[in-house]
Amino acid sequence: MRASWLPLTAVLALVARAEMIDDVLSSLSRGADFLEGQHEHINLDGVVGYLMLQAELKAAVQTWPHSDPVSWGQRSSAVGLIRRLDQSLERAVSALRQSEPNYYREFEPLLTWRFWSVPGSWITTDSSLVYSSTLSSECYDEQLSDKCLTLLLGTWKQNGTPCIVTKPCRDMMTRFGCPFYSLSHQLLYFMIGGMKGCTNLLKGDTRASRVNMTERSYQTIFCSNMMKTNQDILRDGLSALNADIFMENILVCGLAGFSDFYKVDWLQHIFRLQDVEVGCFGRDRNVVSERIGEELLEQLQPHHRVKRREKVLHDGCSSHMTGVAVGALGGFLNYYLQEQDITKRPLS
């Protein structure tokens, strides 16, 4: 083992890292099991979370360390996981095309792992940027938020021009003092704009107080407040009601390159939230019996709109929370591979 010449503390750190990566891969394997069984039913948000995971895994195997047989065996496990996800995600995206054709058309650019870029460098949040007060309720409109994203993506009409920023979109996405999901939507807006290749999203903002603000400035403000949200959640007690936003903050801020969201104890919280039986997250066993009645209602209302944000599956699992969780776990994997392995060298 190459680490034999290292100080004892370094060897112990490598062993702890290897065990942590084993745990992440094991959790992700159970998450892949769930996707294989439920690919026809997972909604758009859930599928996007798995696609973020796929991007993270593909980046990870390219930079996996040549350190020891254990590490190389873990890489082989990750490669196998990628193959499984490739097949399941192809079927899941195809099912979305059939079940939610309008949402599929509007968000099709997001429905490939190639869209999602993985951080190559890291920064941290800044507690001095935390709002002195926040609104008590969400301050974004879901329909307007979706419209703003389609304007960035160019899917607002057939062959639409991308990277359009309207004043209502800019005002909503740069508003300060917003809580919870509003923050993650604001952050995602800037992330998606950047990944789409849109430049100068802030053009036209004439407010003197914002003259020196950049896209990265807003991301840092949003993630600094999302960090405070997560700290408050843990202080008050992580529960089924706030676990989704807790993990969503880790997912999107981690993907934006904020390393301080990848805390070891936060990873342990995610592990504990996974259902050991079916591998999903946010499972409510009481839902299983209730689904029978809901299915009868849906048969009587064939034009009933499926809400994109959440979908409770037949086994009581949360589609959104499961996608968010596996995406967050993929972020942990990528971060620990990049930052924690002192014997790392890139694959040739």
Rank of each mutant, 00 (worst) to 15 (best):
F115D: 06
R210T: 01
G257S: 04
P65D: 03
E295R: 13
V24T: 00
I192S: 00
R83T: 00
T343Y: 11
M20R: 14
L202H: 10
D86P: 09
A92W: 04
W156E: 10
M173V: 05
S121Y: 14
M321G: 02
E138V: 09
T125E: 01
L187W: 12
F258L: 03
C178L: 11
T63G: 08
E142G: 00
S136C: 06
A16P: 11
I42F: 10
L14A: 12
Y140I: 12
D205A: 01
V93K: 06
W5K: 09
K311Q: 10
W64D: 09
R216C: 02
K263F: 07
R175K: 14
P7I: 05
S136Y: 12
R30F: 10
S348F: 11
A32I: 05
C198H: 08
N43S: 09
A240V: 13
L153K: 05
F115V: 07
M52F: 10
L28F: 01
T322I: 02
W122N: 00
G193R: 02
I82M: 09
A3D: 05
G31F: 07
Q143L: 15
L57M: 07
V306N: 11
G254N: 09
G197I: 01
V130W: 01
M195I: 05
C169R: 07
P65F: 09
D341V: 11
H269S: 07
E310D: 09
T150H: 04
D22W: 10
I342D: 03
F281V: 03
T112D: 11
G120K: 15
N200W: 13
S239I: 08
S88W: 04
H304L: 15
T125G: 02
L251I: 00
V312E: 13
T150G: 04
K344M: 11
E248S: 00
L329R: 05
T220V: 06
L347Q: 05
L255V: 00
Y104W: 14
C280V: 04
L238C: 03
R30C: 05
K58Y: 03
L234M: 10
F222W: 14
E142D: 09
M52E: 12
R114E: 15
T214A: 07
K203C: 00
A10W: 13
D236A: 08
S239E: 00
R75Y: 10
D45H: 15
G154Y: 06
T134K: 14
L238V: 02
T322A: 09
Q62H: 03
N225E: 04
L110G: 05
I270W: 01
L337T: 03
G331F: 11
R17P: 02
Y336S: 01
V70T: 12
E290T: 00
G193A: 05
A95L: 08
L297W: 11
T174D: 04
L6D: 05
V324S: 03
V252G: 05
C139V: 08
P179L: 12
S26E: 15
